[in-house]
Design a protein around this nucleic acid. Structure first.
Lengths: 164, 164
DNA sequence: GGACAATTGTTGTCGTCAACAACAATCTTC
DNA sequence: GAAGATTGTTGTTGACGACAACAATTGTCC
């Protein structure tokens, strides 16, 4: 027996025979506490939920935002180049671009130099839309700052700079 | 035009007419660089991939590991309590437990005090298996340490302590 | 103590996402 | 020019989060 069990039942007996519900914060995480992956995962879920909520009116999700940003900063990239840069599978990027192209934010232009590939560009509408998205994303970033603190957010960005 | 485009084509002309492929690290991320969510997401993917690979021989994924750990540390919990503690939907936990129960690592015991709920316990086999999983998870954690540094990992855990 | 609301586990659907595999068109290389 | 690699596409699989509905059971309120 290695488990450090604080109780062996989902109820706690209060001595008078009345079963009490266990609060979530009474439940130990044991080895999980020392795992960076667990904390990072929970944090990432929180961040994405806030991002999706903050950009809810314009209906832009984190992955879509990353694609638009990269295309905006590097017009003419191929799908393969975008996928590699963002760590997205090229098969997945196809659907992402289908959606963004339907919404007239992005256009696929046949490349002159390589007839297999498409040169990706923002439409004029996409350019102005992206401006708005960036303002909303900055607002989301302020939420992150409010949640973990200004210095902690900057520390975090420094620690994880290699993964961008 | 707000885009700071270093090129407008997926090829770079080298002057002699030969098109050169663009390397991924030449592609700017623009606003993405300042977003904690992007870095956290990429890092989380890296961590999970390493975890899955390191625990590949025993076929345990991060979520399964978290469920086993919590049950091991708090025998007798209900499914609802585990789901709440780990931020998993109770509908999703059903399938997770189905799988773990089939593998004889966990057992659902009918609760005496609440006939709606199940008291969750590790089997004897589950106890010894979890020991091994924890050793492998610790090895994974050393990979994280090697990737971002010992101090950075500890800083990270401190910053994100509220999310566990 | 009996009606009504809340909780628990379960089943099902839907959409997102990563990981593969296969394919046609095209390019590169030898 | 033939063989192999690359690009975009389509499709499948499985993990995962979010919902909705349901039966069984428990809690609450009058």
């Amino acid at each position: 027996m290695t488990a450090t069990a604080p109780q062996t039942s989902p109820r706690k007996r209060a001595g008078n025979g009345i079963a009490r519900r266990i609060d979530a914060d009474e439940i130990g995480l044991d080895a999980l506490v020392g795992h960076a992956g667990y904390a990072v995962r929970r944090f990432q879920i929180w961040i994405f939920q806030d991002f999706i909520k903050t950009l809810g009116d314009v209906d832009i999700r984190p992955t879509q935002y990353s694609v638009l940003t990269v295309i905006g900063a590097n017009p003419g990239l191929s799908q393969m180049a975008v996928a590699k840069r963002l760590g997205i599978e090229r098969a997945r990027l196809v659907h992402l671009l289908d959606s963004l192209e339907q919404r007239k934010l992005v256009k696929r232009v046949k490349s002159k130099t390589d007839r297999r590939s498409h040169a990706l560009h923002l439409t004029a509408q996409g350019e102005t839309a992206l401006e708005k998205f960036k303002r909303l994303a900055a607002e989301h970033e302020r939420h992150v700052e409010a949640k973990i603190g200004k210095e902690n957010r900057e520390r975090l960005l420094r620690i994880l700079a290699d993964f961008t």
